[in-house]
Design a protein around this nucleic acid. Structure first.
Ligand SMILES: [Mn+2]
Ligand SMILES: [Mn+2]
Ligand SMILES: [Zn+2]
Ligand SMILES: [Zn+2]
Lengths: 180, 180
DNA sequence: GTTTATACTGATACTAAGTATCATTAGGAT
DNA sequence: ATCCTAATGATACTTAGTATCAGTATAAAC
């Protein structure tokens, strides 16, 4: 229990909904469907993908509610907007501590890593700011690479084998142009 | 010569245009105006701000050319898109080496810092990726803080005094919500 | 200097992503 | 069962950016 996200979609949704109830948001049909779709994606997703998938699940749910739920979840810190290759992606965040993401450029798989497990890195960021005379406030850090599974299946290959929740058909064309 | 960007707008534009000529792009009136406006901003700017400022300078220049030039420059690596507080900003990049940006959350002032001057930081990023089993490929890093000038003028204040190219009237409402 | 080829232009129409409005519905407290 | 109002779906709108295309002006050839 380390690699594969300990919580299945169902319990993730349950947890998200518990949070909503705790803050006296109402538990609606639309929200349930939208959250379920979000939790079922294993990858970051675009708003359009979400819209699509929700429509496929229940055509009666309106566009606006998809965006409303997305925004609500973002404001609750449980969804985060990423900027992958110029395309806005959203991802569920299970970690509540200060963390960042590593994303596989081949398959889109995303993992969270806690800042507390990488103090050296983060103190380096703050140190850099201070060296330039800045009072550090915040930062954005996103790391891209090839995940273990994609390294196995094809030493320079394109798509991962559809195993281990890895499938979903090579979307996420993260053809990074270069470092930034 | 350290703090205040060694090159004035005019020489920046000259340099940009030299690059265009070198790659046999045409030196047009529209491009000249747009590049001049871009170089005159000291801060990152939104596409809308650019559009505005260009229109103010020369109303005959079309919207499309603004975006065309922006995109062209981006593809040439001399303009970069930043994601400040959810708003897309663009900024000129004078450094051609691998670098990142520190942005002042008070006044929007942005500085570039070369990766080669912060090897510890960057090796920490790669090290992190490798520790998670990823083959590092690229990363996005943006640092936010309060710049030296804004620290002076108001120890918790809002707008910087309009000195030192610092003015332009407290735009850039980078009211970051929290760390990411 | 005049001609010429075509890269680039401005106007305009269009798309994509997201937001605002508002009458209607349904969640959940009592 | 009743009631209040948060949340909804439909729809119109906005904002950021793209595509199209006839016309223009740059730069190279003469
Ligand atoms: Mn996360
Ligand atoms: Mn730069
Ligand atoms: Zn992968
Ligand atoms: Zn400042």
């Amino acid at each position: 229990m380390d690699t594969d996200m300990p919580s299945d979609p169902v319990s993730v949704v349950a947890w998200l909904e518990a949070g909503l109830v705790a803050d006296s948001y109402r538990l609606t049909r639309a929200r349930h469907v939208i959250l379920t779709v979000m939790a079922t994606f294993g990858h970051p997703f675009t708003s359009t993908e979400l819209e699509q998938a929700v429509a496929d699940t229940d055509a009666s749910i309106g566009r606006a509610s998809v965006y409303r739920t997305l925004t609500l979840m973002e404001s609750r810190g449980v969804v985060e907007k990423l900027h992958q290759a110029g395309i806005e992606h959203y991802t569920l965040c299970l970690k509540s501590e200060h963390h960042h993401h590593v994303t596989c450029v081949e398959c889109g798989r995303t993992e969270e890593f806690a800042v507390k497990d990488n103090i050296d890195l983060m103190s380096a960021v703050d140190g850099l700011a201070r060296r330039l005379g800045y009072l550090p406030r915040s930062h954005v850090l996103e790391v891209y690479g090839v995940c273990p599974l994609c390294q196995e299946s094809g030493a320079g290959g394109s798509d991962a084998a559809p195993t281990n929740g890895h499938g979903a058909g090579g979307r996420h064309p993260l053809g990074r142009r270069a470092d930034r």
